[in-house]
């Protein structure tokens, strides 16, 4: 399968934080959910991808090209959306179109105005008076109106209400109807990713903990609910981490099939991305309350 993004051994060192040997791929035609808690390294990775900061080591390939040699060509085919609107507050949606027609070679005015109508965004109202949701919708309308092949979103849906978020997720699904298009969606709202992501990559403290298909990741993990005495019989190698309460233990295991056979007498429940994130973040403690 061809990849829209290929990252191998990406490293960036800061004082007090290191993005350590990051490697993952985003296949063409898929949505990669990039999850992790605040400060885990999601934004740093995205900035490295976009060459907004310089990498210390590692290789990146985007849309089959080398960003060091073909930066301009790559950037004309991608769209980046951040949590903050880049357009000045005194501008309106009409003016944004005039400006962006000069920025993007393939600017499609008609598509842009279609999105504005669809999102019910006023064309002549100043951006400064837009709500957060409207600003984000405007940014997404702009990002989708120059036929970009890769959409990179950094916490773009954070801070939006569920209705707006759903609307935006639907737009992404439509965008992916074209198999050449791909999305890298960074978020800590795992429910969004659960809805639309094909793949997930989980980053914590600058390291990739999991990467692969979303369904496989969720299916491979499970939560064993048992008494404290039963918990003692679970092998440490099978455990990601365990929540110990007064009533018993909830144990996250990373190989469901193996554990189903091994611990047949115990209750093994399905899990979610949110739970996986929660248990992995506390993996060093192993036991927590």
């Amino acid at each position: 399968m061809e990849n829209a993004i290929e990252m191998t051994g990406l490293t960036k060192k800061y004082d007090g934080f290191t993005l350590d040997n990051i490697s993952f791929n985003v296949p063409k035609g898929s949505i990669m959910g990039f999850i992790g808690q605040n400060g885990a390294g999601k934004t740093t990775t995205i900035k490295l991808l976009l060459n907004l900061i310089k990498k210390d080591s590692g290789n990146i390939r985007m849309l089959g090209l080398d960003p060091d040699k073909n930066e301009s060509e790559i950037k004309s085919q991608i769209s980046a959306v951040f949590d903050e609107i880049p357009f000045h507050e005194v501008l309106n949606a009409n003016q944004v179109s005039v400006i962006l027609s000069d920025v993007f070679e393939n600017w499609d005015k008609q598509t842009y105005f279609c999105y504005l109508d669809r999102f019910a965004l006023p064309r002549k109202k100043k951006i400064g008076s837009f709500s957060n949701g409207m600003k984000m919708k405007l940014q997404i309308a702009a990002a989708l109106s120059h036929h970009a092949k890769l959409l990179i979103m950094d916490e773009a849906t954070t801070g939006l209400d569920p209705v707006v978020r759903n609307e935006i997720l639907d737009i992404f699904m439509e965008y992916l109807q074209d198999e050449n298009n791909s999305i890298l969606l960074s978020s800590h709202i795992t429910s969004d990713l659960e809805k639309i992501a094909d793949m997930v990559t989980f980053i914590d403290k600058g390291k990739i903990l999991l990467t692969g298909g979303k369904d496989e990741t969720v299916e491979n993990h499970a939560v064993i609910k048992c008494k404290k005495d039963d918990y003692k019989n679970i092998e440490s190698a099978d455990i990601v981490s365990a929540r110990i309460t007064d009533f018993g233990a909830e144990v996250m295991v990373h190989d469901r099939k193996k554990c189903e056979k091994k611990y047949a007498g115990l209750t093994i429940d399905n899990t979610t991305l949110e739970e996986i994130m929660l248990f992995y973040v506390r993996r060093e403690k192993k036991e927590w309350k």
Binding site: N51, E71, E73, A80, P86, F87, H88, F104, I152
Partner: peptide, 13 residues
């Protein structure tokens, strides 16, 4: 306001 960051994600030189 983020324009510089945005412009560096485009092909603008």
């Amino acid at each position: 306001a983020g324009w510089t960051r945005f412009s560096r994600t485009t092909s603008l030189s």
